[in-house]
Amino acid sequence: TKIIYHMDEEETPYLVKLPVAPERVTLADFKNVLSNRPVHAYKFFFKSMDQDFGVVKEEIFDDNAKLPCFNGRVVSWL
C-alpha cells in the first residue's frame, strides 16, 4: 500500500510503502513506519468519501481502524 502524507505546511508530500494490502492497512501500520517522528503529537486526517459531502478529510484516531483507500493508495495529513 502506498501512503502519501502531508506534514504541517510543507509543500511536498512524503510517500511510504507498506507490505499490507490496501483494504487491510490500519492506523497502527502507518504509525509504525513513522517511528522517527513523535506520532503522539499529531492528529491524523485521511482523504475519505462521505455520502453527504463527497470527498473530505476524516480524522482517524483508533489504531485498529482501517484506512480509507483511493486507487490503491492512502492520502493523509498530519
Score class of each variant (00 low, 15 high):
53 F>K: 15
39 V>Q: 10
77 W>I: 05
15 L>D: 14
64 N>K: 08
1 T>E: 03
18 L>E: 04
56 V>Y: 15
61 F>N: 09
1 T>S: 02
7 M>A: 08
73 R>I: 13
29 D>T: 04
1 T>C: 13
65 A>V: 07
7 M>V: 13
76 S>V: 09
50 D>F: 08
64 N>Y: 07
20 V>Y: 05
38 P>K: 13
15 L>H: 15
37 R>H: 15
54 G>K: 15
21 A>F: 05
72 G>I: 01
62 D>A: 07
28 A>H: 07
56 V>G: 13
63 D>A: 05
60 I>S: 02
33 V>M: 09
43 K>S: 09
66 K>G: 06
32 N>M: 08
1 T>D: 02
39 V>G: 08
22 P>C: 06
53 F>C: 14
36 N>G: 12
36 N>W: 08
68 P>W: 00
32 N>L: 08
68 P>C: 00
8 D>G: 10
24 R>D: 14
44 F>K: 02
36 N>H: 09
29 D>I: 01
72 G>Q: 04
24 R>M: 11
32 N>P: 00
46 F>Y: 06
48 S>K: 15
6 H>L: 07
43 K>R: 13
69 C>Y: 10
38 P>V: 12
60 I>F: 00
3 I>K: 02
13 P>T: 15
15 L>M: 15
19 P>M: 06
75 V>A: 05
49 M>I: 06
22 P>M: 01
4 I>L: 07
9 E>M: 09
50 D>S: 15
46 F>W: 00
71 N>H: 08
78 L>W: 07
30 F>R: 02
43 K>G: 00
9 E>K: 08
34 L>Y: 03
32 N>A: 10
58 E>W: 04
39 V>F: 11
15 L>Y: 15
49 M>C: 12
60 I>T: 02
74 V>D: 03
55 V>K: 06
66 K>Q: 11
62 D>T: 05
3 I>A: 01
49 M>W: 07
37 R>W: 06
13 P>C: 08
16 V>D: 02
11 E>I: 05
33 V>I: 09
5 Y>D: 03
52 D>K: 15
25 V>D: 02
14 Y>W: 06
17 K>R: 11
61 F>I: 08
2 K>E: 10
28 A>D: 04
